[in-house]
Design a protein around this nucleic acid. Structure first.
Lengths: 245, 245
DNA sequence: TATAGTTGTCTAGATCAATAGACATTTTAG
DNA sequence: CTAAAATGTCTATTGATCTAGACAACTATA
């Protein structure tokens, strides 16, 4: 008999959402690969110890995300399952790592600005506070699904045309190259996980309560001089990060 | 005037929990460092556009976590704020990386078992399915706060005394050494973020809805032979991961 | 010692989340 | 064609969540 899976009550997170999260995880773990379908609503209701209507709310949310599709009389089919793997190494390049996993990579420049360096960013880039930086806000998607939003900072004196070149070329690596920098390496990466804020929910097309993986990274040229500080937020249920040491 | 921060309604995540998450994040970002206190309930209520009672529920949850402490007439003080940094490199060792950040590191063996290798684990360890493995379940804490739970697998023929040695020494590195392996390296690490399940909530003393960072890692000896597959779940609001490439 | 500012407590009502049961509709298997 | 199995829809009820307002209790300061 099926193992009873626990969900917690009175925690500020509705049962239907907890169940939706568990089913999403089970799908991405391949638990239902044998049939390509989610178990029947009645079976799930028993498994989680809740009413069938509660399970239906969870499945409705997953259907909204386009993850499953219910067909009356037949069952609920899985439409999509895998997480994209994003490799992080000394030579991390956004497009390269995803190349084989998604057919089409989209990069959209949301906006850019010139801001003075301060706090953590100034420290990470080894600049004195106040040094002008180019700020770039971008969204990256794979096969039409948004995967990450990024806010990047570049020293404005060294890369004055960053925004323009990125807008033209759609890639940080290419924008660097267009400004005379042909190679660079990842100096450091820090990763935290947290709930997405309202802006991230909108840009990544996530349902509220969703999780983002935030990577704060510094890239440096081959002389070790920092050239970019980036804060990249990945949609946690669409991505996993692979660390290559 | 304060910027209105948005919270989403009818999403399966109660407003008080969304607000608690936002305040927790603000605390860990140092937004309230100037005063060491959370803004007054009335100010927060206006900021989030909700009733004061809703903010009170959020603060009560944070007080339960021991993150803040309310004093009548005075305000709500911040008790604790920082995240511990966990370094991941080619020579990742649990205790070493945390050494300077926490005074006392605790390791507790929850249980152990002998299981046959299968699926992802067999593949990662380069073993044929069915090969016997030692499974170890552990909780690791820093200064009394649980930081991570881990499930590790070791080839049983090579490390037959893993459970025993870990129980005695409280460290995987030392247990390896006791069985004749003096050095090893991190071969691969994959990171995902998701909501904690009921067991993780209990072991990590988290409030429901909390996030875990799950790292699936493989360690290998210096000849490149895999010796350990581990699934480590970190309490996301207490840890950040630092990738050293 | 007032007084302003803050948290604590209580009551009441509106809306959302979850349970329960009944039955309709559709697909698949026999 | 029939029956079983699955999703779809409806009604009703209970408990959680959120709003609203009023006032008590405590702290710091002028």
């Amino acid at each position: 008999m099926a193992v009873r899976k626990t969900v917690e009550r009175q925690t500020g997170v509705a049962l239907w959402r907890q169940i939706a999260d568990r089913i999403r995880l089970a799908i991405s773990n391949g638990d239902y690969d044998a049939t390509g379908m989610v178990p029947p609503e009645t079976a799930l209701a028993q498994e989680f110890g809740v009413n069938r209507h509660t399970v239906r709310s969870a499945l409705a949310a997953l259907a909204d995300e386009g993850l499953v599709r219910a067909v009356q009389g037949r069952g609920t089919m899985i439409e999509r399952k895998e997480r994209v793997t994003y490799p992080i190494s000394r030579r991390t390049r956004f497009s390269q790592g995803l190349g084989r996993q998604v057919k089409e990579i989209g990069s959209r420049l949301l906006g850019h600005d010139q801001v003075p360096a301060h706090g953590e960013i100034a420290a990470a880039l080894g600049l004195s506070p106040g040094t002008p930086l180019v700020e770039l806000n971008t969204v990256n998607s794979g096969d039409g699904r948004p995967l990450s939003v990024a806010t990047s900072y570049f020293p404005a004196d060294r890369f004055p045309k960053m925004a323009e070149e990125y807008g033209r070329l759609g890639s940080v690596t290419k924008a660097f190259a267009a400004q005379g920098l042909n190679d660079y390496v990842r100096a450091s990466t820090e990763i935290v996980a947290r709930h997405a804020d309202a802006e991230e929910l909108a840009l990544l097309q996530l349902s509220p309560g969703a999780i983002v993986l935030e990577a704060r990274s510094v890239n440096a040229d081959l002389d070790g001089r920092p050239i970019e500080y980036a804060r990249t937020r990945f949609a946690a249920d669409r991505m996993k990060l692979r660390i290559e040491t």
